[in-house]
Every structure is written in C-alpha cells, then in structure tokens.
Amino acid sequence: MEWMAWTWPTAIFFVVIASLLITFTILAIKFPETPRVGILQIETTRGDRLFITLLGSAFINLAWLGLTDITQWAALGLCLIYAVAVFRWV
C-alpha cells in the first residue's frame, strides 16, 4: 500500500466513517423503525439523520477552517453538538 501513500489520519477518518455505517446498518436490522417528521418537515430515518449529520459536519469544519484560527478540535466539538441536535429534532 506504500505506493498509494496512505496515512494514519486518513485511515482513522475512514475507519470512523465505516464503523458508523456498519453500526447504523446493524441498528436498522436489529431495531427497525418508522420514519418520523422533524423540524425540517421531511421524513427522516436514522440513516438520513446520519447523512445530514456527516454532510453538515463537513461544512461546519470547512467554515471553521476558513473563518477562524482556533484549533480544529473545537469544530469537531461543535459537530458533536450539531449531531445531537440533528438526531433529537430533525
């Protein structure tokens, strides 16, 4: 794998995403759910909410990177709050 120049941080990033996907797949099989309508007025399942969380987190991180000089870990904290909010209300 040397020739593809993989690095540990990217590996960790993808392991986190992959394990999230696997966890949510197992959850969906073990505990089937009915979609619900949240504040966005759209029907969402857990998978949809995960997608909204991940996509939103990407934009939060980019905005943080472009607008502030504060450490990026703070953006990650903000993403966690955002994730909780999405799973609670969307």
Binding site: M4, A5, T7, T10
Partner: peptide, 20 residues
C-alpha cells in the same frame, strides 16, 4: 474517492513522494 481524501492532506513534488 478515498485516495482523493488521502491526497488532500498531503503535498507532492512528483516522483510519488508525499509529505504531510
């Protein structure tokens, strides 16, 4: 696509040498 993510956090001057 994963390779693109991997490249985005590195720099290269060719010759397949990458720097963080």
């Amino acid at each position: 696509l994963m390779t693109v993510v991997n490249y985005s956090v590195q720099d290269t001057f060719g010759n397949n040498q990458f720097f963080w």
